[in-house]
């Protein structure tokens, strides 16, 4: 479904992505991990065209993201994205956050959009907060709303950019639970995260990045069982010692 082919990207003279190739098949859950500055957030932002690339191609189903003529707006309405800092629209209620893109981009009627919004909010257990504003919710609640906002567009795939990194420890699990449920229902997911417990539980593959390059790209059990590269071993030992 998502094909990333020999992607390279520079910020001025600094190379942030170095010849990265990987894929995410339909229904697969792929976790991207690595030390800070490895380029994992940049990579995932290239998938829906939020960041341009200088070399290589990216395909989502039959759309070539990197082609000049691609209608990125249309593509983004089919892929959902969840951000590290939630990024809910602060001047709108939870309900309005979920309905905005449904109505303005997908052209759904107000009734349809609201029904979908209410169903999704119910699923994440936040129905009593639906009229509140983001500033009145905790971080964990905001992130669950953000996931619902992305799901409201009925996407074919979901991208997660460090969804729990900005959360207090006690709220991480409430968000991960939602993501696990999503994975078990068969959503195609690409997740940048440090949460190795989550990876072990639902990820089909783990992609390990370092200094802008993909160092390892292997099925989950193999990655955790016998990592091939020294950098991966080093990273795992630091992370898993928590």
């Amino acid at each position: 479904m998502i094909q990333i082919d020999q992607i390279s990207k520079w910020y001025g003279d600094f190379q942030v992505l170095n010849n990265c190739t990987t894929k995410v098949d339909r229904g697969e859950v792929v976790v991207v991990c690595g030390p800070s500055g490895s380029g994992k957030s940049t990579l995932i932002k290239c998938v829906n065209g939020l960041e341009p690339v200088q070399q290589g191609t990216i395909r989502v189903e039959d759309t070539e993201v990197t082609a000049k003529r691609t209608n990125l707006t249309k593509l983004r309405s089919r892929i959902g994205m969840v951000f590290q800092h939630f990024e809910l629209y602060p001047h709108m209620s939870v309900r309005a956050n979920l309905c905005l893109a449904q109505e303005k981009v997908l052209g759904r009627s107000s009734d349809e959009a609201n029904a979908r919004a209410e169903a999704l909010i119910k699923r994440v257990g936040l129905s009593e907060h639906i009229e509140k504003f983001p500033g009145q919710l905790s971080g964990g609640q905001q992130q669950r709303v953000a996931i619902s906002r992305a799901l409201a567009m009925d996407p074919i795939a979901m991208l997660f950019d460090e969804p729990t990194s900005a959360l207090d420890p006690e709220m991480i699990n409430e968000v991960l639970d939602v993501m696990v449920e999503l994975a078990q229902e068969g959503m195609t997911m690409m997740v940048v995260t440090h949460e190795m417990g989550f990876a072990r539980k639902v990820a089909d593959r783990v992609v390990f990045m370092d200094a802008g390059a993909i160092v390892e790209d292997r099925p989950t059990e193999q990655f955790f069982g016998e990592p091939e590269s020294d950098r991966a071993k080093d990273f795992l030992s630091k992370i898993l010692n928590h």
Partner: peptide, 15 residues
């Protein structure tokens, strides 16, 4: 961040 989120949500520049 918010701008990226809006674009990721499928909104066009004008929207």
């Amino acid at each position: 961040g918010l701008t990226s989120a809006a674009y990721a949500n499928g909104l066009s520049t004008a929207q």
